[in-house]
């Protein structure tokens, strides 16, 4: 028994009929072919499946596609170009988002598997807190596991992005922005 859904993913509208139990992560990966969102633990611990749902980081392995119907989703593939998800970190012309750039500059990844989720969790943080300190970054990323890097270069990557983003034209922040977690 299929259920009709419609989602706005990376700026594109998608309609379809899905089995209600289809997980959002499987919808993104298997139906839309957006395989940058990874599956790591399946119990909403590791955060590899993190996407932005209406601008907020969520774990797409613990969401049904039907639950996300009517929402806007940004995956790693759409981060750089999606203004909504990217906040003021997005660069023009499909270049890298400041957080992606930070991960590259600071060697914030090794095998790269946790990276898309880690980047999107960092984007969520930087939307709320323009200038997070080390402790705030560590705490904001505690829903994402990385087994390669030891996290230190990831923290430097986020700091790099924060600096870069605040140097750009400031974006109008939402009411809750600027609060620390």
């Amino acid at each position: 028994m299929g259920v009709e859904i419609q989602l706005h993913v990376n700026g594109k509208q998608h309609h379809g009929t899905v089995e209600p139990r289809l997980l959002l992560v499987h919808y993104l990966r298997d139906v839309l072919g957006l395989t940058g969102t990874h599956i790591g633990c399946e119990t909403s611990i590791c955060g590899a499946c993190t996407v932005l749902l209406d601008g907020k980081a969520v774990k797409s392995c613990t969401l049904l596609a039907v639950q996300a119907s009517g929402s806007e989703i940004t995956t790693i593939e759409g981060l750089a170009s999606s203004q909504k998800g990217a906040g003021n970190g997005a660069a023009a012309n499909g270049a890298l988002h400041a957080v992606q750039e930070g991960f590259w500059e600071k060697h914030g990844l090794q095998c790269g598997y946790c990276t898309p989720g880690m980047i999107l969790a960092a984007v969520d943080l930087l939307q709320r807190n323009k200038n997070p300190n080390e402790g705030q970054i560590r705490s904001a990323l505690s829903g994402n596991l990385c087994r390669c890097t030891g996290y230190q270069h990831i923290i430097e990557a986020v700091q790099y992005a924060a600096k870069k983003m605040s140097a750009r034209k400031p974006l109008k922040m939402s009411a809750s922005a600027g609060r620390t977690p």
Partner: peptide, 23 residues
């Protein structure tokens, strides 16, 4: 020298392929 990695652009954009990404 601390060169940035050549493999990173595809990884940070989620456009590389691990086994489960192949269809």
């Amino acid at each position: 020298k601390p060169l940035k990695r050549k493999e990173d652009p595809r990884l940070i954009q989620g456009i590389s392929h691990y086994v489960d990404d192949l269809n």
